[in-house]
Amino acid sequence: MRHSRFDTRLGLTATLAVVAFLIGPVLLSVTAGVTRNYFVGLSSGLTLDWIVQVWDLYADTIWRSYAVALATLAITTIIGVPAAWVLTLFPGRLSRLLEELLTLPVAVPGLATALALIVSWGSVGWLRSSVAFIVIGHVLFTLPFMVRAVRAGMQGADLMVLDEAAATLGASRRRRFFDIIVPAASSGIVTGALTVVTLSIGEFNLTWLLHTPLTKTLPVGLADSYASMRLEVASAYTLVFLLMLLPLMVGLQWIAARSTRHGGLGLGAST
């Protein structure tokens, strides 16, 4: 089919403008993070000093963010994969209601979820002061993404029939779950896992209210540096964060390109 020339020109212009709008500031940030003096400009020379300074100041937040993300991943996998299988097995009303409910922590602003957690569980001292409190928040926020990704993987294969076939061969439920269902859903689980880690590493809205001075994560540290550090340090810290995201996003896009043609990633960081 021929496209009207106006359509193509408008589309191309809009696309390039949007890419410039989205990527331009990222380039500014990367540049600022390695420039000796951003206000003077690139002529002041390039340096890795700011990144070293970020490492000295904030290394603990980076490690903590990884730890929180991995703990979140472990929990969402252990409870999310079985939940996804149950939702696939029972495609009725009740199951739609359950999925709708599990998605609420994403639909409702993180601030509200965080306040609710604080008023209900904040008085439990050991919990309030540990990273576990943050992990709980992250699990609530990321679980729907894991469930959705795994379900999408399960619907491709005709798993219900496979499960019944395995049952007639005498396999117990536990065997069937680990021998049939988990392998068939593996690509969905990988997508879900990358999504969960990406979202957890970047989660701010819940974490800002749930953290204590001793449980700062990377985004909390970022907010801190934006408010109190010089622009170059803030930019260098942002650069470190972007480098952490990069392999995760590349992995997600690689999987998405392999499985389906269209471009939507089922992902959305906390805003």
Partner: peptide, 16 residues
């Protein structure tokens, strides 16, 4: 390039 910013949290967007 269009999809990469999906992973940026709000704080980072504000800084950009």
């Amino acid at each position: 390039l269009l999809l990469f910013p999906l992973a940026f949290p709000g704080v980072v967007v504000g800084f950009l």
